[in-house]
Amino acid sequence: MARAGLNPQVVVRAAAQLADEVGYEKLTLAALASRLGVALPSLYKHIKGADALAQKLSALATAEIADEMMTAAAGRSGADALRAVAVAYRSYARRHPGRYPTSQRVPDPADPEHLAAGERAVGVVYAILQGYGIDGAAAVDAVRMFRAAVHGFVSLEATGGFGLPREVDRSFDQMIAALDIALRSWPSTGPRAR
């Protein structure tokens, strides 16, 4: 019998907390059922399986990070907005090391809330880029550069990938400064095909 008060939202929130505690790679349905105090078959009344849980966890993490990025960008523009959003992104990844990786999953087209969260997150970066005069196809490239740089940095940091004897925060600041310079000189069109 399912535990009273258990629903899909409670299950996903518990999975997010567990992932942050043990790491996403160690999150299993059995461990989640144990955390919730239910038998594994009872968990299937609320979540269809591991892939469905991963998708819902991704939707949650994407919504959370989008909200934090939007809050950080509010009332800011240019380099100030760029830095604030990058710092918020990094801060989220540090506070939620288990659920953050799931935010990199492409939103499920069948989940309108997941799609909306993804659009909010990307929309924040697009708004910053407008302040640099970057739009259209050039903005797609710039969004990808921002995401690759910041995600790459936080992923390397999370796995202990920075071993050189230099303060990591300083390197992060330098990366954001370099992104600002790149965006201020962004070409309006991409390179020509050869």
Rank of each mutant, 00 (worst) to 15 (best):
A2E: 07
N7A: 09
V10P: 03
V12I: 12
A16K: 02
A19S: 09
G23I: 13
K26H: 14
A31S: 12
R35C: 05
G37Q: 13
G37D: 14
V38D: 01
S42M: 04
L43W: 12
L43T: 05
H46W: 10
I47T: 08
K48E: 15
G49C: 06
A52M: 04
A52P: 00
Q55F: 06
K56G: 08
L57Q: 03
L57S: 03
S58Q: 04
E64R: 15
A66H: 11
D67L: 07
M69Y: 12
M70R: 15
A72M: 11
A81R: 12
L82I: 03
V85Y: 10
A86C: 06
A88V: 02
S91T: 15
S91G: 07
Y92M: 01
A93H: 12
R94E: 15
Y100C: 01
Y100R: 02
T102K: 01
Q104R: 15
Q104N: 04
Q104S: 11
V106R: 06
P109H: 12
D111L: 07
P112E: 15
E113V: 09
H114W: 10
A117F: 10
G118R: 07
A121N: 03
V124Y: 09
Y132V: 06
A139V: 03
V140S: 07
R144T: 12
A149G: 03
H151M: 01
V154G: 03
T159L: 05
G161I: 09
G161K: 08
G161F: 14
G163M: 03
D169Y: 06
R170N: 10
M175E: 08
A177I: 01
L179E: 04
D180L: 00
A182I: 09
A182G: 12
A182K: 05
W186P: 00
T189Q: 15
R192C: 00
